[in-house]
Nucleic acid binder design. Structure first.
Length: 917
RNA sequence: GCUCGGAUGGUGGAAUGGUAGACACGCAAGACUUAAAAUCUUGUGACCAUUACGGUUGUGCGGGUUCAAGUCCCGCUCCGAGUACCA
């Protein structure tokens, strides 16, 4: 009987819909397992063959867990707000909602063809008001919360207000933008507006004046993870630094918990490392320096031990200290320098490695020696890190060194025997010298000793600093969640939770207003709250994706983000599958958001994603034809060196196993209608290269086309067979025939002519051995995500059973169940043909029996001095003496022993005998 | 610069320190066919032999540990990813 995948796949996809096979509900009688994919942004280009890689892997795992008796939650949805739909709207006038819905429909159509076990009744779209109601709700809660450093959790802001009115800021230990001090009387005598301004300093969602990444082309600010090398990730437009009043999330308050949480989850070490670097914890000290005019300022350093090597100070150009410290004499030069650095874009600043700076005219006083230290201003010091000011130790910091050399400032070495004539000595090792009370100590000892001394003298204190910045949460765009915020007397207030969702209004154009307000400023019927104006910014892309995994647990609940009941059953994601590109964006924000919800008691787990697997990127594999210059003649790959040729990209879909379909090529482009070919062996062979998968390279392979010609099961198996899941690899349709042949061979195991031909007899020992070997291998391969070797195991077993002429019902039943997570359609078909009434999804994963895997006879490899020479068979119960005797008695042994007697004989059970001579 | 990966046939890739190259593609030969496709069988790292069920060599390079190293250790080379004046 023919393996008609088209018919089979259609039939069972229909069956699964009709029987709601993949619908799940909370079932306390079963253990839960939550498998989640990073939901896609539905782009206009549709899915290419790389996108489903992770979905197939997670689908295999979900189906496997289900067969093992778990109640598996495996949902899918769309991250539907975002820039491309809005850019498209600006160009075409088509409403982003329409574009998005169209793209979603296309995605769904493509996904459906691959046979995923998603519970689509739980589908969410982040642009759906019913969904973003809860994004807005969480924002309101963040607005009304502050972070208590003592309790290490978020608390209602009302508690802070109460504390202010009772005791002011005394004894306060909370996360804030800048430390403030006031008494209860002062607080109580402030106006409503003044109090609101002060509270902004503490809210977890707050309005702050911060340096932001401003992208003029996109007309919006961007988060740090949306910018790379000075250009926007989406679109690649230049980004500049600008000070703006923006909504921010106090992610930095959670820095330590985000760091500590990494210890409790199963992520790869490299991803944890990336997050650790991004959080960037560094231990050091804040040291106060007095200036010659009587004021003072703080610096942060991790090298307090180098305090005696400070020869000058440097301020960031953006620092507020610049204005306070600069003397009148130098004011003009400083102003000019600041103007110059401001003009540079982020990108230019990165590219420009040259040293620049200007003297402020002011001096700091060295806290130990009383020496006068000139204060400089330079853009190598960042306003956003530490205090925006540093103590420069040119002998032991390469940047300070470069600066000192350039401006001819003194360099004082502090480590015995170090040579700083050519470069600084940055290593944290050696014995201190020229360092007063630190002399003779190692660097390791000197750091804490120096900080102790500084603390004792009241010059500063120990401080842990984090690189992690607060997230900038405003976007000057249309296609995002509106803020549930209105302004009264210039201060923001939240809408009542009962007024949510605050829906996105209609606008006539998706561009900023003439007065430079965001697009929402155009809304005619935009609601006002009791006559007060609403916030015109919208939320960024990561807002909707930060807590979506919670919403899948209870997607239709209008009363809560997630019910207590559903949350306590599903808890958190057991397996999260997605790309590494979200390592510092989504995966930080999600963890932050979840920790906040955990503090509120909404989420019962402190980490959202227990185990995380990163699938590799699928790159494109481009094909080339070679046109002889100045002609319309194309020469085959191996003959091209004899001609002067230009390589031209050719659509990979008209090339099979690197052989060009000449007819299709002539029809591909009118230019090639009359093309001539110089063939080899009657074929035109194309060249190839690995490139990014993109339309312009003509190397995009569409999953629909593969499903059309080979079937979804073949696509699924082949994507897994291509290589290790985590590894990046090019898509190469060559080779797909291998898994396709396997499926047909497997299919044929069941049939004699057109009839199902199964036998109910006892399986033979060889059949049992083969199938139990498969069960063992596939079980362990799925557990370790080695899907590529699992596919090989299927092929091996099918070949073995085929040569054994196995028709045994129980053996083939186990095979079908094992294969069903990988190739659900063919498995479902065979499962039903074998007389089962229910879906193969509800079968039970077979267990393997080691006793069938036992060998009677083992083939030993006999080595002499580690070099393998011949093989010998031994019974499993052969004794050491028997083996030794047999080896030495073997005629070949004489040859390798060369008359000498062995020093030692090493026997590795069941495998190796090594004779050491 | 720093951090983390990786390097194995013509290709994708297998190998708890124990017969390197599983499995698959491709290629070659054969069977079936008027023929082609499909299918099946056999072979396939390189080199030397071919009377053999033979020998030599071989996992980016150079050392080391071990009876035994693709795998562990030290020192390089190249490639990829992330990050970057973070004091």
């Amino acid at each position: 009987m023919e393996y008609n995948f088209g018919e089979i796949e259609k039939r069972w996809q229909q069956y699964w819909i009709e029987h709601q096979t993949y619908k799940v509900t909370e079932d306390p009688s079963k253990p839960k397992y939550y498998v989640l994919d990073m939901f896609p942004y539905p782009s206009g280009a549709g899915l290419h063959v790389g996108h489903p890689l992770g979905y197939i892997a997670s689908d295999i795992f979900s189906r496997y867990k289900r067969l093992q008796g778990f109640n598996v939650l495996h949902p899918m949805g769309y991250d539907a707000f975002g820039l491309p739909a809005e850019q498209y709207a600006i160009q075409t006038g088509q409403h982003p909602a329409i574009t998005t819905q169209k793209n979603i429909a296309r995605y769904r159509e493509q996904l459906d063809k691959i046979g995923f076990s998603f519970d689509w009744s739980r589908e969410i779209q982040t642009c759906d008001p019913k969904y973003y109601k809860w994004t807005q709700w969480a924002f309101i809660r963040m607005f009304h919360s502050y972070y208590d450093n003592q309790l290490k959790k978020a608390r209602p802001i009302s508690e802070l207000v109460e504390q202010f009115s009772r005791q002011g800021t005394s004894g306060l230990n909370v996360a804030c933008t800048e430390p403030l001090e006031f008494t209860a009387e002062e607080w109580n005598s402030k106006s409503e507006k003044e109090q609101q301004q002060i509270l902004m300093n503490y809210r977890i969602a707050y309005l702050g004046d911060t340096m932001v990444n401003w992208c003029p082309q996109l007309g919006t600010v961007l988060a740090n993870d949306e910018v790379s090398e000075g250009v926007s990730i989406r679109g690649g437009y230049p980004v500049e630094q600008k000070k703006m009043r923006q909504w921010c999330l106090r992610v930095s308050a959670y820095a330590q918990r985000l760091l500590d949480g990494l210890e409790t989850i199963e992520w790869t070490d490299s991803l944890k490392d990336t997050q650790r670097n991004w959080i960037g914890r560094s231990e050091g000290a804040i040291i106060r320096f007095n200036t010659s005019n009587g004021s003072s300022f703080d610096i942060f350093t991790t090298r307090a031990d180098t305090i005696f090597g400070v020869t000058f100070m440097v301020l960031a150009p953006e620092s507020e200290l610049v204005g306070q410290l600069t003397t009148d004499e130098y004011r003009e030069a400083v102003q000019a320098y600041i103007e110059k650095t401001k003009k540079k874009t982020e990108r230019e600043r990165i590219a420009d490695k040259s040293v620049s700076g200007v003297f402020s005219g002011a001096y700091a006083i060295h806290p130990f020696t009383g020496e006068k230290l000139p204060i400089w201003i330079s853009d190598y010091v960042l306003a956003g890190y530490g205090t925006g000011a540093i103590m420069a130790v040119p002998a032991h910091d390469s940047r300070d060194y470069a600066f000192a050399k350039h401006f001819d400032l003194p360099i004082v070495p502090l480590i015995e025997g170090c040579d700083v004539s050519e470069e600084s000595f940055d290593a944290k090792e050696g014995i201190m010298t020229n360092s007063g009370f630190l002399n003779g100590l190692t660097v390791e000892e000197a750091i804490p000793r120096a900080i102790d001394e500084i603390q004792n003298r009241g010059l500063g204190y120990r401080k842990v600093n984090y690189r992690l910045r607060d997230a900038i949460f405003s976007r000057q765009r249309y296609w995002g969640e509106p803020f549930p915020i209105y302004y009264k007397d210039g201060m923001p207030y939240t809408l009542d939770e009962g007024e949510l969702p605050l829906e996105l209004p209609e606008v006539d154009k998706f561009l900023p207003t003439e007065t430079g307000e965001p697009p929402l400023g155009r809304a005619k019927n935009w609601k006002t709250k009791d006559g007060y104006p609403l916030e015109l910014n919208t939320m960024p892309g990561f807002a909707g994706s930060s807590a979506y995994y919670l919403r899948y647990m209870d997607p239709h609940n209008d009363e809560a983000l997630v019910s207590k009941n559903a949350d306590e059953y599903w808890r958190n994601v057991d397996l999260y599958v997605g790309g590494t590109e979200h390592a510092t964006g989504h995966l930080i924000y999600s963890r932050f958001w979840d920790k906040f919800l955990f503090d509120l008691g909404v989420s019962c787990e402190e980490e959202p994603f227990k185990k995380l697997v990163n699938q590799g990127m699928i790159q494109g594999r481009s094909n080339f034809v070679y046109r002889v210059k100045g002609t319309n003649t194309f020469v085959s790959f191996n003959l091209k060196d004899k001609y002067d040729v230009t390589p031209i990209h050719v659509d990979v879909n008209i090339v099979h196993n690197d052989v060009l379909d000449i007819e299709a090529f002539r029809n591909w482009n009118p230019e090639y209608k009359t093309a001539e070919f110089i063939l080899e062996d009657g074929k035109y062979i194309c060249g190839w290269a690995v490139e990014k998968m993109s339309k312009s390279m003509f190397n995009v392979v569409n999953p629909d086309d593969i499903v059309e010609s080979y079937g979804a099961d073949t696509l699924r198996l082949y994507e897994m067979f291509l290589g290790p899941l985590e590894q990046s690899k090019p898509w190469d349709t060559n080779g797909i025939d291998g898994v396709y042949r396997f499926l047909r061979r497997f299919w044929n195991l069941f049939f004699e002519g057109n009839k199902l031909a199964l036998q109910d007899s006892e399986p033979t020992r060889d059949e049992l051995k083969s199938i139990h070997k498969l069960i063992k291998k596939v079980t362990s391969d799925i557990e370790t995500f080695s899907f590529n070797t699992a596919v090989s195991a299927f092929m091996i077993c099918a070949n073995e059973l085929s040569s054994l002429k196995c028709r045994n019902r129980s053996v083939l039943t186990d095979f079908v169940i094992c294969l069903s997570p990988f190739a659900p359609h063919i498995s479902e078909e065979l499962w039903h043909l074998m007389g089962n009434e229910t879906s193969v999804c509800d079968a039970v994963w077979p267990s393997f029996d080691e006793s069938y895997l036992k060998e009677d006879v083992f083939t030993y490899s006999i080595s002499f001095n580690g070099k393998s020479r011949f093989t010998l068979d031994f019974q499993a119960d052969a004794t050491r003496e028997q083996i030794e005797a047999a080896v030495l008695a073997h005629p070949n042994s004489q040859k390798w022993l060369e008359g000498k007697s062995p020093k030692k004989i090493i026997i590795v059970p069941k495998k190796i005998v090594n004779v050491v001579i």
